[in-house]
Simulated assay, not measured.
Amino acid sequence: MAELRTDRLVLRGWRDSDLEPWAVMNADPEVREYFPDVLTRERSEASVAGFQADLDQRGWGWWAVEVRATGEFIGFTGLDPVDEDTPFTGVEVGWRLARPHWGHGYATEAALAALDHGFTTLDLAEILAITTATNLRSQAVMRRIGMTRDPADDFDDLTVPEGPLRRSVVYRLRAKDRQ
């Protein structure tokens, strides 16, 4: 399994010690504002098991993110094939951080490391990012990491109940367009 390092972060496999802060993070309504619901502890634990299984099998996926200087777990970022119910195929980059770690540039830094891994190690031609139309903070990160949006790619996520979270926007970055 690949472990990625940046100046301030480590993207690594999941540890038992990550379960509690991950569960707390996923129970936070502000962190889950752009998702249909918060996660129970059981759902959070199941997600970690799936993330680690993907990392073990593929060598890449949703990595746990820790601050290098302190070893503190702060969230996740990584690459994953888009869900089967998405109207297109590809690999997406994504992130989720605990609220105390918002506004420090960690999402951008971690996402850039994941993109670099996807383009240089996995030799991907393109990487996508998907979020709700209302999640302006994530869209700002997408633009900061060099991605662009074509509104023609936007779609309604039919797995989400009707309402403001159903409309999804898609950002893309092609390897040939990287700076």
Rank of each mutant, 00 (worst) to 15 (best):
A64W: 01
R41I: 06
E45A: 15
E109Q: 04
S47Q: 15
M147T: 06
M147S: 14
Q57Y: 10
R149G: 07
F35H: 12
G94A: 13
F88W: 14
L122V: 06
H104V: 01
F88R: 06
T70G: 05
W63C: 00
L136W: 13
G94M: 03
T134Q: 14
T121C: 10
V48C: 14
V48S: 14
A53D: 13
E72V: 15
P81V: 02
A114P: 06
I145N: 04
T148P: 01
Q57P: 00
N135R: 03
H101L: 05
V91Q: 05
V141W: 01
L39C: 10
T134D: 09
E42W: 04
A152F: 02
D153T: 04
H101P: 00
I74G: 02
Q57D: 09
L39M: 12
D153H: 14
D85P: 00
V141K: 02
N135V: 08
W62L: 05
T108D: 02
Q52N: 12
G146T: 09
V67L: 14
L39S: 15
G59I: 13
A64K: 05
A129K: 08
E84R: 08
V67T: 07
A110H: 08
D116N: 12
D56L: 07
G59W: 12
G105M: 12
G71A: 06
V141Q: 02
G94F: 01
P151N: 12
G59S: 10
D150I: 03
I145Q: 04
S138N: 09
A113W: 00
A107N: 07
A140R: 15
L128C: 09
A140Q: 13
D85K: 02
D80K: 11
G75I: 11
A107L: 02
H101W: 15
D116V: 00
T120A: 11
A69R: 13
E92N: 08
W102M: 01
L122Y: 06
S44Q: 14
T120Y: 00
V91N: 11
L39H: 13
F51D: 05
R68E: 13
L79Q: 07
R137P: 01
D116K: 12
G103Y: 07
R68D: 11
F119K: 13
Y106N: 04
V65H: 01
F51H: 15
T131G: 05
H117Y: 15
V141E: 02
F35V: 04
R58K: 15
T86M: 10
E42K: 09
R96S: 04
E109R: 04
L136C: 00
L39G: 00
A129S: 14
M142S: 13
E66V: 15
T70N: 06
G71R: 06
Q139E: 10
R68L: 13
D157P: 12
R41A: 12
Y106E: 04
L115H: 11
V38W: 06
L79T: 07
G94P: 05
P151E: 09
E42R: 11
T148H: 11
R58M: 04
R143V: 09
D85N: 14
T159C: 05
A129R: 08
R144L: 03
D156P: 00
A129I: 07
G105Y: 12
D80Y: 01
D153M: 10
D83E: 14
S138G: 07
E66D: 13
H101D: 03
L128N: 10
T132W: 00
A64S: 15
E126V: 09
